[in-house]
């Protein structure tokens, strides 16, 4: 790898940018994106200079003589939080260093990682609903409230997944999810069941909380990636507002106080 051809450098730059944008859209913090891309570049003996915008990653590669050899930028494709990608790419960056992969091998491994499947939809629905009833219990709910939280989470998540499939705006997807989940929980309260209203209602929408942007916001701010941190924070607040709006709509429909 001492004197790679120009084609190889372009290929390497493309692979690095692809790894970067995939990390960004899967919910990695800026420090991690930078670290992984630099580690990958260093194992091919290049120095990487990276700039991360909220929706794109730019990269220049310098060779050992500090001469510019590659310059490129790529913007993210829409994709949800995916920790399998983050963990896979991070592992790949170590394997490249230890096992001396060629550029083509890195490309193949990246393609394989990106094609890895999600958990089956029923599994996701079941476990997230279980998490919903878990939240309900930890906030002091009893069995009836937990069952309602389970059902509400299941319905809300299902509708939200459908909305995501139809490529609605992400905030609208969250709003619809929140609306459906709270409509489900509210129906039992409206039917006059003797349950703790607050526990069932407040925990039915918790599966929508924007945990990843919220925590990445702070991680980025601490690292000094202030702009990205602020962008993620505002995103998280917008999602929270969408959840609140869904709850409000339900309360208006059922005339709950």
């Amino acid at each position: 790898m001492n004197h790679p051809h120009e084609k190889d450098i372009n290929e390497l730059g493309g692979v690095l940018l692809e790894a970067g944008v995939n990390l960004l859209s899967s919910g990695a913090s800026c420090a991690r994106i930078r670290l992984t891309m630099k580690r990958l570049a260093a194992s091919f003996k290049y120095t990487a200079h990276i700039s991360i915008a909220p929706k794109s990653v730019s990269l220049t590669l310098n060779n050992e003589a500090d001469a510019l050899v590659f310059n490129g930028m790529r913007s993210i494709t829409a994709q949800g939080v995916n920790f399998k990608t983050i963990s896979g790419i991070s592992r790949l960056s170590w394997d490249v260093l230890e096992k001396q992969y060629s550029i083509q091998q890195v490309r193949d491994e990246l393609d394989r990682l990106m094609a890895l499947p999600h958990y089956p939809r029923l599994v996701i629905l079941f476990f997230v609903s279980l998490a919903g009833s878990g939240f309900c219990f930890s906030f002091g709910g009893k069995l009836p409230e937990m069952v309602i939280a389970f059902g509400a989470t299941c319905c809300g998540l299902f509708v939200r997944q459908e909305a995501v499939k139809h490529r609605f705006n992400p905030f609208i997807c969250v709003y619809i999810g929140s609306l459906v989940a709270s409509l489900f929980a509210g129906a039992f309260i409206k039917a006059g069941l003797n349950i703790n209203f607050e526990h069932a209602f407040a925990t039915s929408v918790l599966f929508l909380i924007p945990g990843v942007p919220l925590i990445n916001c702070f991680t980025d701010l601490i690292d000094g990636n202030t702009l990205n941190g602020i962008v993620r924070g505002i995103n998280a607040v917008m999602f929270a507002l969408a959840i609140a709006l869904g709850l409000l709509t339900t309360m208006f429909i059922y005339n709950l106080k």
Partner: peptide, 24 residues
């Protein structure tokens, strides 16, 4: 202990939503 148990399940639910690797 029961609350801690359910917090664990809450974490696993979100892990599956975020598509974490099975080994984690």
């Amino acid at each position: 202990l029961a609350k801690a148990f359910w917090c664990g399940w809450g974490a696993v639910g979100f892990g599956i939503l975020f598509n974490v690797p099975l080994r984690t």
